[in-house]
Amino acid sequence: MVADDMPLAAVLRAYDQRVSLDLSAVDMPCLLVPPGDLIALCRQLRDAPALRFDFLSDICGVDIFPQSPRFMLVYHLFSIPHKWRLRLKCRLSEQASAPTVTPVWPTANWHEREAYDMYGISFDGHPDLRRIYMWEGFDGFPMRRDFPLRGYKDDYNPMGAKRPPDEAAG
């Protein structure tokens, strides 16, 4: 499935060493990119006539707790003219925020809201960064590895886990 003829070498050269190819990927080529270069890279991937990644399939947040940096954003791109898929991975520390890709692909709007809602990853410049699944005022980010499966105990959730003491105080 890996498209060997995808002209990625030019892209890699343009970001000398900052963007690298993840050789462990088996299903499609995968690029590792730092948050600072994400927008420029996305624009290039979308607009370069030889690449034309015009379709953003998905943005997936991943929590690699307790490893550091803790978060990872995985972007799955697809090129409708060339029928290629590409994966971008962007590592983020807990405090850092990612740049929004909504100006490049408007569809990212809800995907980024989902990543924010589930993991608490914030996106700089997002037009409408609110929770999407959970209600406003919900405490915590449910998909984080340290969030209990049953949620935290409260009036509505008597079977939930007890909050760790340091968090309950804050």
Binding site: M28, S57, D58, H76, F78, R85, R87
Partner: peptide
């Protein structure tokens, strides 16, 4: 890791 995409009735259904 693996991303599979199929043509579900509603569109591209992907499992990552």
């Amino acid at each position: 890791e693996f991303y599979s995409a199929i043509e579900a009735p509603k569109g591209e259904l992907g499992y990552y």
